[in-house]
């Protein structure tokens, strides 16, 4: 992360940089176990959470991460901002810049919004999800959780199952895991799989596999990542009914049994129980869904430290 000012996506990060973030996150985890969960490292730095889309865990996670490092965190959400009065993204950016924010964490429904912001402000921009493009800190916390459980990021079989079309989490994870030469199996209903998705990865594209068979994706998998069906982004019908979706693409116990005996099951949240994942699986022994949330704070602390600390 030397000389890097923004975190806009996984695609342009090197393996070395990814490992650096994960290593720092591992050290920073300890802060959250102390009786006084705070260190003075980013005292006097301001972090603005600018969220144009609904979010609980990512926004809260960034807020807690910033506060544990003693940064001043300000939250702006769509409903309370001037955007609802018609202000453009560019004007919002200039306004925040005039207030000398050190970092802006942005979530926006338009792909590339953080990149636009990065050109217009002096602040460090952190992408907290832009459209269906990238969600880098989610992929980093997923990698952190996988490394914690599997001891490595290389040479794994990872099945990413669900609404691939609308998922920035799938894309960021695809970039990250193929950088480490793990096999990624993308699986969904044909209507929820963007055509040519295997060509998205330039290097190591032989590690990307596309299938419409859940059994094939799960067979011998080390990691199963379930994705939420993003109804809010669907302007038309992508499948006949929720019940049918669950029958064909939902993760149940029988399907989990095809994976490796030490498989871990992940979900970026929020979950639609009974749509993409059965309740007994989500709360079952293989599930690391709450570990992911805990990792999120450590990883975001590491990102803030590496971008703002030096």
């Amino acid at each position: 992360m030397h000389n890097r000012k923004h975190l806009l996506g996984i695609q342009d990060l090197s393996r070395h940089e990814i490992l650096e973030i994960l290593d720092v996150a591992e050290s920073l985890q300890e802060v959250s176990t102390r009786p006084i969960k705070k260190v003075p490292t980013l005292r006097g730095k301001s972090v603005i959470n600018l969220f144009f889309e609904a979010s609980t865990r990512t926004r809260t996670s960034f807020e807690i991460a910033g506060k544990r490092l003693s940064a001043d965190v300000v939250n702006i959400s769509l409903s309370t901002s001037s955007v609802s009065k018609g202000e453009t993204l560019i004007d919002t950016a200039k306004t925040l810049d005039a207030m000398a924010a050190d970092s802006v964490v942005i979530r926006h429904s338009a792909s590339g919004a953080p990149h636009t912001l990065a050109k217009l402000t002096r602040a460090s921009i952190i992408n907290a999800g832009d459209g269906a493009h990238e969600h880098p800190t989610q992929a980093l916390l997923d990698a952190f959780t996988i490394r914690q459980r599997k001891g490595r990021l290389e040479n794994l079989k990872v099945a990413i199952i669900g609404d691939i079309t609308h998922s920035r989490v799938a894309r960021s994870n695809l970039y990250l895991l193929t950088k480490f030469q793990s096999h990624v199996w993308l699986c969904s209903a044909p209507t929820l799989m963007p055509p040519g998705v295997e060509k998205m990865v330039c290097e190591n594209s032989e590690f990307v596999h596309v299938t419409h068979s859940m059994n094939e994706a799960i067979e011998g998998a080390d990691v199963i990542m379930m994705l939420r069906v993003q109804f809010e982004r669907m302007s038309e019908s992508f499948f006949p009914s929720v019940r049918e979706y669950f029958r064909y693409w939902g993760l149940n116990r029988e399907r989990v049994s095809r994976a490796k005996p030490d498989v871990i099951i992940m979900h970026p949240g929020p979950m639609n129980r009974g749509v993409e994942i059965a309740t007994d699986v989500a709360d079952g022994p293989y599930s690391v869904i709450l570990d992911q949330v805990a990792s999120g704070v450590a990883v975001r602390m590491a990102v803030l430290y590496l971008l703002l600390g030096g």
Binding site: D23, V24, S27, L28, V39, T41, Y305, G309, G310
Partner: peptide
């Protein structure tokens, strides 16, 4: 004890100190 989170020269040093585990 790793003291890097408590340094008074974080904004002055050119390199970024690697934070190690505190136990």
């Amino acid at each position: 004890l790793d003291i890097n989170l408590y340094r008074d020269d974080l904004t002055k040093v050119a390199f970024q100190p690697v934070v190690h585990k505190t136990e």
